[in-house]
Simulated assay, not measured.
Amino acid sequence: MMAEEHRDLEAQIVNDIHFKEIDLVNRDPKNINEDIVKVDFEDVIAEPVGTYSFDGVWKVSYTTFTVSKYWCYRLLSTLLGVPLALLWGFLFACISFCHIWAVVPCIKSYLIEIQCISHIYSLCIRTFCNPLFAAMGQVCSSIKMVLRKET
């Protein structure tokens, strides 16, 4: 029964990866780059009142900036998008592998091993320190302080 459930889960994961609908309209559904790389002409070039260029220069500059940014991004994503996606996929797969197969087992192992040590440590504290601190508390409990204001 478990093997059958495992196969069903594995088939579902494969189907999710291969047949997942890709949203071509909203390509940043989690708003990762909403404010980071959203740069328009007005965010970079702005002329304060009293220092305006010719209207034609302003319009051509706006068009040049916008079109060059658009096509440069498209060219770079065409040339480097797939290789970088492969690189990032490989990197995050390695990180996931290390986390699943090394980090979490090391932490779990440490917690199991430290539990034994913590029992021994707490036993030593209760055996040696508690009586010492109780005795020191009784000695110090008879100390009285009086504050006087002298004029």
Rank of each mutant, 00 (worst) to 15 (best):
S141K: 07
A11V: 03
E113R: 10
I45Y: 08
A135E: 10
L75E: 03
Q115V: 09
A134N: 08
D23I: 05
L24M: 14
N26I: 10
K69N: 07
V104F: 00
I100D: 00
E4D: 09
C94W: 01
A93W: 00
A135Y: 06
I114A: 10
T66D: 01
F41K: 07
N15D: 15
S68N: 02
V49N: 02
I17S: 05
S142R: 07
I107W: 00
D16V: 15
T78R: 05
D43W: 03
D16T: 15
A46T: 14
N15M: 13
Y73C: 09
D23K: 08
G89V: 11
L24C: 12
Q12S: 13
V14P: 04
P105Y: 01
R148W: 07
E113C: 08
I114E: 07
L91A: 06
I114T: 11
F54M: 09
A134C: 09
I117H: 04
W88H: 02
H18E: 06
I107R: 01
I17M: 10
T78W: 03
R126A: 15
G89N: 09
V60G: 00
Q138W: 08
K20I: 14
D8L: 09
E150V: 15
D55V: 15
Y73I: 10
N31T: 14
E5I: 14
F92M: 05
K149I: 15
S122K: 12
H99N: 01
E47G: 11
N31V: 15
I143P: 02
F97N: 02
H119G: 15
V25F: 09
L111M: 13
E5D: 14
A102C: 04
L9E: 14
S122Q: 15
P83Q: 08
I117M: 07
T63Q: 14
A135S: 11
A135D: 13
G56P: 05
A3I: 10
V14H: 08
V37C: 06
I107L: 05
E47S: 13
A3S: 06
D43K: 03
F54A: 09
D35M: 03
I112T: 12
F128H: 07
A11C: 07
P105I: 07
F97H: 01
L111W: 09
K108F: 00
K59Y: 06
I45W: 04
H119N: 13
C116I: 12
F41C: 04
L86S: 11
E42Y: 02
I22F: 08
L111Q: 12
A134T: 07
W88A: 03
K20C: 04
N15I: 10
L91M: 04
C98H: 00
A3L: 05
T51H: 05
M145L: 10
K149E: 09
